[in-house]
């Protein structure tokens, strides 16, 4: 079984990465809608999938966080990606399965996955 002592090892490994992550002006913020509507639609597994993908690939300059209800409940789970100097990208009807592609193509590659965005959904 895992013990909290193992956390000390993670801390030591993370210290350098984390200090740059928070202050980094290139920091990308992934915000998952976690109001009642988002949670009921399955936001939690989506947030967990982003967390796992970012941790597993050791992506240095990304934070995964939550946001409230932004008023498009019918499109939940909604994920907003804020990258410095770029327009916000809004992904809708997200699933854990879609996360890997968003991380590799958008977060790492810089090109949003157009077909998952609200623009594509409204067409």
């Amino acid at each position: 079984m895992k013990s909290l002592e193992e956390l000390a090892a993670i801390r030591d490994r993370m210290k350098n990465i984390v200090n740059t992550r928070e202050a980094d002006e290139n920091n990308i913020r992934i915000a998952v809608g976690m109001a009642t509507c988002g949670i009921a639609a399955g936001a939690r597994p989506v947030l967990n999938a982003f967390t796992e993908e970012i941790a597993r690939r050791e992506v240095p300059h990304v934070t995964v966080t939550q946001t409230g209800c932004i008023g498009i409940c019918q499109y939940e789970p909604v994920v907003e990606v804020f990258a410095p100097g770029k327009d916000k990208v809004t992904y809708v009807k997200m699933t854990p399965e879609k996360v890997a592609r968003v991380v590799s193509e958008h977060i790492l590659g810089g090109v949003p996955v157009a077909e998952y965005t609200i623009g594509a959904a409204q067409r």
Binding site: K2, S3, L4, E6, L7, A8, I10, R11, R13, M14, K15, V18, R21, E22, N48, F50, T51, E52, I54, A55, R56, V62, T63, V64, T65
Partner: peptide, 20 residues
């Protein structure tokens, strides 16, 4: 206390806590 400044929001910490 254990993390000594490494934020609880770090994906790596969250992943550990989840498994723990």
């Amino acid at each position: 206390g254990i993390l000594q400044g490494v934020p609880l929001s770090s994906p790596e910490v969250a992943l550990f806590l989840r498994e723990y």
